[in-house]
Amino acid sequence: MKLGLQFGYWYASPPADANVELAQEAEKLGYDSIWTAESWGNDAFTPLAWLGAHTSKIKLGTAIAQLSARTPTACAMAALALDHLSHGRMILGLGVSGPQVVEGWYGQPFAKPLARTREYVDIIRQVMRREAPVANAGEHYPLPYVGPGSTGMGKPLRSITHPLRADLPIYLGAEGPKNVTQTVEIADGWLPVYYSPFRQEVYADQLKGMKPGFEICPLVQVNIDDDLETALIPVKMTLAFYIGGMGSKEKNFHKDLMCRMGFEAEANKIQELFFEGKREEAMAMVPTQFADEISLCGSKARIKDRLQAWEDSPVTTMLVMGNGGLDMVRTMAELAL
């Protein structure tokens, strides 16, 4: 099992030195990849390009770039450029996000996310293969565009710049069963936001069709502390926010996943408390068992012991993140590599 270092998205301001020191240390220690994210603040590609310019061999991934932030051809251009500049280190991680962000921030419709993802990936693959001018007859990203406001003068185009790799890897963030099934079909890897090696049956049916070389790269929070409950606090805070606030009562993919993983009553209560403004109570409602299964927390010895379950799972790369900075990066390299 390989290690990747997940930096996530920025908060009120960029992280100190834009995470360059951490990226360089991860590269030195043998990490396979580093990853950047976006929400409704920084984009994913700019920090990744900065980190790529300060490293030389570690792979560079977006986890995840949101589909609605840019058209598929614009996304392909960014990935194509970064792949050239990094000498073939780029991994394009994509995801649909959720209706709150898609419609509230990007001003785009969220309907039919699976069909939208399929079209998006197909167009990017066309750009990268550069076998013919790019065209798409689908309803979400028609190329050339013909519709309201169209001049009728659009024509299929082929990228001026020849991609470095026709097979640049595309990974997808997916949570729902249908989305994961489609990811196995059309992508080169899967980026699960929550994965429990102790509940492999949750996604067993969806992963049956995996191609050789298909990557499974879950996000795993790592917090090292001899007191387990203290170590789990950041995990529970994140879960309370995502399950309670990252979506509406009618549509929240994170809550739905927690329900499928066997914690339906708790998920419903967390959402209820969060919407009532009782965030600390919502966090307290997050089951220790659930938070513990999807993370690596506790003493160094405990984390080493629990790594075996991940080694025995289908996971190929663990994307670790946590509050420990260089100490966490070095400890995980010592324990897992």
Rank of each mutant, 00 (worst) to 15 (best):
M1D: 14
L3D: 01
G8W: 07
Y9V: 11
Y11T: 01
A18K: 02
N19Y: 04
L22I: 15
K28I: 06
K28H: 06
L29F: 05
G30C: 04
S33M: 06
W35R: 03
W35A: 07
N42D: 01
T46P: 00
T62Y: 10
R70W: 11
C75K: 01
A76G: 02
S86G: 01
H87T: 10
G95C: 05
Y106A: 13
Q108S: 15
P109I: 08
R116I: 08
M128C: 08
R130V: 07
P133E: 00
G138T: 13
Y141S: 02
P142R: 05
Y145Q: 05
P148E: 05
G152R: 03
L157Q: 08
I170Y: 09
Y171M: 15
L172T: 13
G173R: 13
G173I: 09
K178E: 09
N179T: 15
Q182W: 10
A187M: 02
A187L: 07
V193W: 10
S196F: 10
R199I: 03
L207G: 06
F214H: 08
E215D: 05
C217T: 12
L219V: 11
Q221P: 15
N223M: 05
A231S: 05
L232P: 02
I233D: 03
P234G: 13
K236V: 10
S248I: 09
N252L: 09
N252G: 08
L273I: 03
A301G: 05
R306Q: 03
E311C: 05
D312P: 10
P314N: 15
V315C: 11
M332N: 13
M332H: 07
E334I: 07
